[in-house]
């Protein structure tokens, strides 16, 4: 579904991505692991069009989207749930969702999707008129996911959705990720919480210092020594 080939993205002279190649299979959950500063968020922003890659090619179902403006990427069917959620703090929950559907013109469809979001995230329904800045971290994460879904993406990018959330909330987020995937959305997830990711994802990539250094199935992840040490602790002993 998504093909990333030799992508180089730089901030001034510093290359954060030094030629990243990976692909995301349609209908699957693909997970990107990696330490802070590896370039995971840079990759997400490069796909979403916020950052322009210096070299390389990004294609969505054989349609090239490299260097396209963010609105064109959204139009092509990609939505990003950004790191740190980035909700619109002074706008109500409902307005945040309306903003998510900005490029759509089908009023009836937007209204129906909004109701669907409120069914999927009942907490958001309770807080419909409340300013997003007053929500808890977990609620903001739900809102950020719901806002991204309002554009009806075929591919949902999620940048560390569990960051800074309580364990119970993390479980809920991952339950939602699985549900969304079951309903047909392809998901590309950046995650530091490898334990949780192992329960849901179908394929894994590891990124280090701007390069992909590992690619494999959940089974292979459990075998790989690097990932063992860095992400799973020494649980293999038991």
């Amino acid at each position: 579904m998504l093909d990333v080939r030799d992508v180089v993205t730089a901030y001034g002279k510093i290359e954060a991505l030094k030629g990243v190649t990976l692909s995301v299979a349609e209908g699957r959950i693909t997970c990107l692991l990696g330490p802070n500063g590896a370039g995971k968020t840079t990759l997400m922003y490069s796909i979403a069009g916020i950052l322009k890659p210096r070299r390389g090619r990004i294609a969505l179902k054989d349609r090239e989207i490299t260097g396209r403006a963010p609105d064109q990427v959204v139009q092509a069917g990609v939505a990003l749930v950004p790191e740190n959620r980035l909700v619109f703090p002074q706008m109500s929950v409902r307005e945040n969702l309306t903003a998510g559907a900005y490029l759509r013109r089908d009023r009836a469809g937007i209204a129906a999707d909004m109701e669907r979001m409120f069914q999927r995230f009942p907490r958001l329904k309770e807080r419909e008129g409340q300013l997003a800045g007053t929500l808890s971290g977990g609620e903001q994460q739900m809102l950020s996911v719901a806002r991204a879904l309002m554009s009806r993406p075929r591919l949902l990018l999620m940048d560390e959705p569990s960051l800074g959330l309580a364990p119970l909330v993390v479980e809920e987020i991952f339950r939602i990720v699985t549900e969304l995937n079951r309903d047909g959305t392809t998901i590309f997830l950046v995650e530091q919480n490898a334990h949780m990711a192992l329960k849901v994802a179908h394929h894994f990539y590891l990124m280090e210092q701007g390069r992909v250094s590992f690619s494999g199935t959940p089974g292979e992840v459990e075998e790989a020594e690097v990932i063992q040490r860095a992400y799973l602790g020494s649980r293999r002993a038991d």
Binding site: A48, G49, I50, A69, P70, D71, V74, Q75, A79, L80, P82, L86, V87, F88, P89, Q90, M91, E95, T98, A99, G100, Y102, L103, R147, A148, S151
Partner: peptide, 23 residues
């Protein structure tokens, strides 16, 4: 209005506004 949503979105969180497709 829709224009107002876009304007406030850009004012409050320009990166997220772009991710919503707002130019």
């Amino acid at each position: 209005t829709r224009l107002g949503i876009a304007t406030r979105a850009v004012a409050q969180q320009p990166v997220a506004a772009q991710l919503c497709g707002i130019r």
